[in-house]
Measured scan of single mutants.
Amino acid sequence: SEHYTFDGEEQAIRFMRDMEAKNLKYELQIHNGKYIIQVD
Rank of each mutant, 00 (worst) to 15 (best):
Asp18Lys: 07
Val39Met: 08
Gly8Gln: 14
Ile36Arg: 04
Ser1Arg: 13
Gln11His: 08
Lys34Ala: 05
Leu28Met: 10
Ile36Met: 07
Ala12Trp: 04
Gly33Arg: 02
His3Cys: 13
Gly8Glu: 15
Met19Trp: 04
Gly33Pro: 00
Gly33Asp: 06
Asp40Pro: 12
Glu9Ser: 07
Gln29Thr: 14
Tyr26Phe: 11
Glu27Trp: 12
Gln38His: 14
Gln11Ala: 14
Asp18Phe: 10
Ile37Asn: 00
Lys25Leu: 07
Glu9Leu: 14
Met16Lys: 01
Val39Phe: 07
Lys22Phe: 07
Met19Ser: 03
Gln11Ile: 05
Ser1Pro: 12
Phe6Ala: 01
Ala21Leu: 11
Ile36Asn: 04
Met19Gly: 03
Glu10Ser: 06
Asn32Gly: 10
His3Ser: 14
Arg17Pro: 01
Asn23Phe: 07
Asn23Met: 08
Arg17Asp: 09
Glu2Arg: 14
Arg14Gln: 14
Lys22Leu: 13
Tyr4Val: 06
Asp7Val: 07
Gln29Ala: 09
Ile37Cys: 01
Ile36Pro: 00
Gln38Cys: 12
Leu28Asn: 00
Ala21Ser: 10
Gln38Ser: 14
Lys34Ile: 11
Ser1Met: 13
Gly8His: 15
Asn23His: 10
Glu27Ile: 13
Tyr35Met: 02
Asn23Asp: 07
Ala21Asp: 10
Leu24Ala: 06
Leu28Thr: 04
Ala12Val: 04
Glu20Ala: 09
Thr5Tyr: 12
Met19Asp: 01
Asp40Trp: 15
Val39Leu: 09
Val39Cys: 03
Met16Leu: 09
Ile30Tyr: 10
His31Tyr: 11
His31Phe: 11
Phe15Leu: 03
Glu10Thr: 06
Glu9Trp: 15
Gln29His: 13
Glu2Ser: 13
Lys34Trp: 08
Glu10Pro: 05
Lys25Asp: 05
His3Glu: 12
Met16Gly: 04
Ala21Phe: 09
Gln11Met: 09
Leu28Trp: 09
Phe6Ser: 01
Gln29Tyr: 14
Phe15Thr: 02
Thr5Gln: 09
Met19Asn: 04
Ile30Cys: 11
Phe6Arg: 00
Lys22Ala: 11
Asp40His: 15
Ser1Cys: 10
Tyr26Pro: 06
Lys25Thr: 09
Lys25Trp: 10
Glu9Gln: 08
Ile30Gly: 01
Asp18Gln: 10
Gly8Met: 13
Val39Arg: 02
Met16Val: 05
Gln11Cys: 07
Gly33His: 05
Ala21Lys: 11
Ser1Ala: 12
Glu10Trp: 07
Asp40Gln: 14
Tyr35His: 03
Thr5His: 09
Tyr4Lys: 03
Ile30Ala: 03
Asp7His: 07
Ser1Tyr: 13
His31Thr: 12
Gln38Asn: 10
Met16Arg: 00
Met16Asp: 02
Val39Asn: 02
Tyr35Cys: 02
His3Phe: 15
Asn23Lys: 09
Asp7Cys: 09
Glu20Arg: 04
Asp7Pro: 05
Gln38Lys: 15
Met16Thr: 03
Ile37Met: 02
Glu9Ala: 10
Ser1Leu: 13
Glu2Ile: 15
Phe6Gln: 00
Lys25Ala: 09
Asn23Gln: 10
Leu28Ser: 03
Arg17Phe: 08
Leu24Thr: 06
Ile13Ser: 07
Asn32Pro: 02
Glu20Phe: 05
Asp18Trp: 13
